[in-house]
Design a protein around this nucleic acid. Sequence first.
DNA 1: AGGCTGGATAACGCAAGCGTTAGTTACAAT
DNA 2: ATTGTAACTAACGCTTGCGTTATCCAGCCT
Lengths: 165, 165
Amino acid sequence: MEFEERLRDRDAWSIGDGCSAGRVLDLLSTKTVFLVVRECFYGTTRFDDFVTRIGASAPAVSRALKQLKAAGIVAPVVYREPGSRARDEYRLTEAGEDLLPVFLSLIQWGDTYLQEGRPPLSFVEAGTGRPIRVRVTAEPTPEATCDDIEIRLNPAWRRDWQGSP
Amino acid sequence: MEFEERLRDRDAWSIGDGCSAGRVLDLLSTKTVFLVVRECFYGTTRFDDFVTRIGASAPAVSRALKQLKAAGIVAPVVYREPGSRARDEYRLTEAGEDLLPVFLSLIQWGDTYLQEGRPPLSFVEAGTGRPIRVRVTAEPTPEATCDDIEIRLNPAWRRDWQGSP
DNA sequence: AGGCTGGATAACGCAAGCGTTAGTTACAAT
DNA sequence: ATTGTAACTAACGCTTGCGTTATCCAGCCT
């Protein structure tokens, strides 16, 4: 459909707050919420790790997790460190893992337009090493799930986690 | 890469504010900004149309457009209605159109998890009518651009734009 | 020229989210 | 039992963005 045609049609309808995009943005309302989801994809599960790795305050993380639990995007899972009490860790639900295209497409755009050199992370297919991309297409094609993706760190971004403040 | 392995690795690096996702979220910081982008994809170009169709205030739209112009996502284009003065309309730049996967993946997730019945809009390939989807894959495949996509309205959502308040 | 119209923005009070600080809870250790 | 500790969470001032109102500005119209 040509752009001008789409423009003409746009007057015929109004979906108001029925728009899926608007509804999703109500859930992922704040930056902190989204960064928690990002960390989930990176493998973070525990409260304090979210706090330090996101660089947000504990209450902000607490609020974000509460929202994400209510939305069914993360779910608490009990774990027990030997010699410690039982704790919750937070894992993406199936709905949460389905946010992968949202997450990756944001990264992909940022890598293209907001990074000067090579981006800090690359996402490649686990077996083959082929780069994973988000594609908009009508063509059926084998899709990668979270577990098929290997995250490679650009060496320029490596840090000694203990070494630097 | 298995999840546990990713988790272990996550301690080795810290990209801080270098993360593309974080940077993008600084640009698309507010819901209004994102809804303006949505309307651009739907074909809206003029200031007042953004205001009425988004349901936001004029200053909020003004601020959002200023941010998007600064980020190079939309660009002003002069137009002239006969008998009126020259005005700006706003069109997605190439960088803006590259937000298509972000936009579509949000819609796709919302359609799956936040809609009860059929979603209000369907996105299909213009020529064939095949449904357009966002796919995460390493497989090279012909991709659709904005102009290849036809937006179909679910009849249940049709409104007489003049008829109802 | 001077009024008028309509697009766009500045000014300001309000509401929502964030970070700091302080508190609560549930267990282990003693 | 009592103390200690680690994981969260409530309470509160502050910053930021939103909407309402008022203003500006450019050009058509008479």
